[in-house]
């Protein structure tokens, strides 16, 4: 069973979002997603300053087998990305998807979008259904 921390918000396409104390939001892919993708070998994150829209393709994660788009859970400007760590060690997304394997941070332009994200319980249902 994959881990689904209760303090995070999720998209049904398997991204997570964590609201930090300064109001910025850190984004990554879920434990379930990294497990389904397998060993990651390449991660492409959005450049700082890029404007993202909710649900738009923001990053790409590639395992040995395939490439997958990562969608932004929120609209906003990219204020940081984890390319320093992930360009050398993309496997951090496998080993620590909610920690060192984070992908990028945004400054949300519309904080009401947060309300439309799934909580851990709802996301757990998505994962269960994907398993059947």
């Amino acid at each position: 069973m994959s881990s689904i921390p209760s303090n995070l918000k999720y998209l049904d396409s398997h991204e997570w979002a964590r609201v930090e104390s300064d109001g910025t939001v850190t984004i990554g892919i879920s434990d379930h997603a990294q497990g389904a993708l397998g060993d990651l070998v390449f991660v492409e994150v959005p450049e700082v300053g890029r404007a993202l829209t909710k649900g738009g393709a923001a990053a790409v994660v590639e395992s040995v087998k395939a490439a997958s788009d990562v969608y932004s859970p929120l609209s906003g400007e990219v204020i940081a990305n984890n390319s320093n760590a992930l360009s050398a060690t993309p496997e951090l997304v496998n080993s620590d998807p909610y920690g060192q394997g984070w992908l990028f941070k945004v400054k949300p332009s519309n904080s009401s979008e947060l309300g439309s994200l799934l909580d851990a319980k709802a996301y757990e249902k998505v994962v269960e259904e994907a398993g059947h």
Binding site: G38, D39, V41, S63, V64, K65
Partner: peptide, 11 residues
């Protein structure tokens, strides 16, 4: 089976 855990380790 596509892998049993880690494709890279199997390789």
């Amino acid at each position: 089976p596509v892998h049993y855990g880690s494709q890279i380790e199997e390789h």
